[in-house]
């Protein structure tokens, strides 16, 4: 199965999905005209991975800005991961925020709330 790489646009995230390691990386800002359209290939990749590879998944999120539609799409994505986790698979979500960025940290904590899959909020320092 193929890897998926989406390069960041002016208003879209940089996304890379690795079929061998099961690592999904999302970084940047997201406020596309059509969020559902943008995230569709990522959902397709995930379904494909779940059905054909069915191994561990790590989702790394380095988000700077999400508009509301993108937030909804990311929720759905994580919900899908949660279902996969509840079926007995290993899933880890890492939400990264710059040490001083309380807004992004809070956003991560909002995502984390009520989720049953492993979801950690991690600070990093800009070097």
């Amino acid at each position: 199965m193929n890897n998926l790489i989406i390069n960041a646009g002016k208003d879209t995230l940089n996304i890379s999905c690795d079929s061998v390691t099961g690592i999904i990386d999302m970084r940047g800002i997201s406020y596309p005209q059509d969020a559902a359209d943008f995230f569709n290939p990522v959902f397709d990749w995930l379904e494909n991975y779940i059905n054909n590879v069915a191994a561990d998944i790590t989702l790394n999120l380095h988000i700077d800005y999400l508009n509301t539609s993108s937030t909804k799409c990311l929720f759905d994505f994580i919900d899908r991961l949660e279902d996969y986790y509840k079926q007995g698979n290993t899933v880890q979500v890492n939400w990264y925020h710059e040490a001083h960025d309380d807004d992004i940290k809070e956003t991560g904590l909002e995502f984390q709330e009520d989720l049953e899959l492993p979801f950690v909020v991690l600070a990093y320092s800009k070097s």
Binding site: Y65, L66, N67, T68, T71, K72, F75, D103, E106, T107, E110, F111, E113, D114
Partner: peptide
């Protein structure tokens, strides 16, 4: 409802940031 409240909270945070 759970998602709606979370999305609204995140929307507010992002608006503030903006």
């Amino acid at each position: 409802l759970q998602n709606a409240t979370k999305i609204t909270a995140i929307g507010d945070i992002n608006q503030k940031k903006l």
